[in-house]
Design a protein around this nucleic acid. Structure first.
Length: 404
RNA sequence: GGGGAGAUACUAAAGCGGCCAAAUAGGACAGACUGUAAAUCUGUUGUCUUCGACUUCGCAGGUUCGAAUCCUGCUCUCCCCA
């Protein structure tokens, strides 16, 4: 009942930047179709933060495609690897997390992952299963399978070493642990970002040492963040979370640089790329293409109604300069006022705008602050508070005052 | 174990006794221009109820009228030798 080989290859290779060894990969797929045997497709996640963002959905979507083609998706929750901390792409050692935090994150992860994957067909494995009770002798045996030179070949380690930035010994274990995961679940294919190349290769070596068939790798590009330069990551603040509100999701998509659109379409949607390329070549106004992208993403994680509503809202607020239809309400107690007035900086603080007095003053002095559309650039001003007054700081921040 | 170098704000990096709340660049934020795009120009970027005051330059002490700058101890990192 599995789809034809050609169809599988087309679906699977979309967006894939690196498949290696490609011959082995094709052979595995071919054999799977011929023998009607699903492949075991591995994806490892480290629940280092409680929520996931679009960058990670790139690989999740790929895993889902494998599921839809009838293969067995295996999601490894790296409850132990997360404690070690993946040094990939890091320029310094990662903060250690407690195992407890990691487990808490993991459950929230699974909920979010279910928005993309078919949870019923998903095999979920915690790698603490085999790491928890490992004896020291076994650890040494694992460590002996890789040399220091091999580790230092890795680009990020290499850079850190050359820059004289510290590398802790335990960080060398990360790739080994990830590799051992592949051995234990007998992976045929491992998915990952291109930055996982090294780790996945270690898995191949360990599998080979364990006298089993080696996994093939399918690497996907790293999704750039909203700034269009650095990779999407929570710590850089350039991310869209799958749990973001429809408003934020749509708004964030609209703010990405144009050159990012093609990548986002390719990695985050199922639109036919030849069609997308025509749009981007000038068939559609860039803003329109971006809106299609935004709506697609909002629809995927929320609903079509949300998407349509946010588009209309967005156009109303930003294109026509209207106020948002709903904005956070801030309650002001009358007792806080003097003669019905309040110091401007205190008002902003009550609204939650800015993180310090200095920053709030800065906003005021730069003319970013408006009360019912009246700009006030005086940081000493006393504002007469009126019930229902709308306060704006910059283009994006709004609040409505409720006097009580 | 021995010797050497270093730790400055979000990041990189100057400063090496007063002119330092600390140059410069990036980032971030705001204004203009726009499509909440890019590019560009301009400004802001320690904290604080404003004047002005207060606390920062790895941590703890000390010298001095005065310290990011000098001294002592501690912590951490890198390099070289073993």
């Amino acid at each position: 009942m599995e789809p034809s080989l050609e169809k599988q290859i087309k679906t699977i290779k979309r967006g894939a930047i690196d498949i290696f060894p490609e011959k082995e990969f094709d052979a595995k797929l071919k054999k799977s179709v011929e023998t009607q045997t699903p492949l075991r497709v591995k994806l490892g996640v480290d629940p280092t933060s409680p929520d996931i963002h679009l960058g990670f959905t790139v690989v999740l979507r790929k895993l889902r495609q494998f599921q839809d083609l009838g293969h067995q998706a295996v999601l490894i929750i790296g409850d132990y690897t997360a404690v070690v901390g993946d040094p990939t792409g890091k320029s310094s050692t990662r903060e250690a997390l407690t195992h407890k935090t990691v487990l808490q994150n993991a459950s929230s992860y699974l909920d979010q992952v279910s928005k993309i994957l078919d949870r019923d067909k998903l095999e979920v494995v915690y790698n603490g299963q085999w790491f928890e009770d490992m004896r020291f002798g076994e650890v040494m045996k694992l460590a002996s399978q890789m040399t220091v030179a091999q580790m230092l070949e890795r680009d990020d380690f290499n850079k850190r070493y050359k820059n004289h930035t510290p590398i802790s010994l335990h960080e060398f274990f990360y790739p080994l642990m990830q590799g051992l995961d592949s051995v234990n679940i007998k992976a045929d294919i491992e998915l990952g970002g291109t930055d996982q190349r090294f780790n996945i290769l270690v898995g191949r070596d360990l599998q080979s040492n364990a006298k089993m068939s080696q996994q093939a790798a399918l690497c996907l590009p790293i999704l750039p963040g909203l700034d269009g330069v650095q990779k999407m990551s929570k710590s850089l603040g350039n991310y869209i979370g799958v749990d973001d509100t429809p408003k934020n999701m749509y708004g964030k998509i609209m703010s990405i640089p144009d050159h990012l659109m093609r990548t986002y379409f390719e990695l985050l949607t199922d639109y036919d790329m030849s069609e997308v390329d025509r749009w981007l070549a000038g068939e559609k106004h860039p803003k329109e293409s971006k809106s299609i992208l935004g709506k697609y993403i909002v629809t995927q994680y929320h609903s079509e109604e949300d998407a349509i509503r946010e588009e209309a809202e967005f156009n109303s607020v930003f294109a026509s300069g209207n106020k948002p239809s709903d904005m956070p309400e801030v309650a002001i107690v009358e007792a806080q006022l003097e003669n019905g007035q309040m110091w401007i900086v205190a008002v902003l603080e009550a609204c939650g705008f800015g993180s310090s007095g200095g920053e709030r003053r800065r906003l005021i002095k730069q003319g970013a602050v408006k009360f019912d559309d009246v700009k006030c650039a005086d940081d000493k001003a006393q504002i007469t508070i009126v019930d229902g007054m709308i306060i704006q700081a910059g283009k994006k921040r709004f609040a409505k005052l409720i006097l009580s």
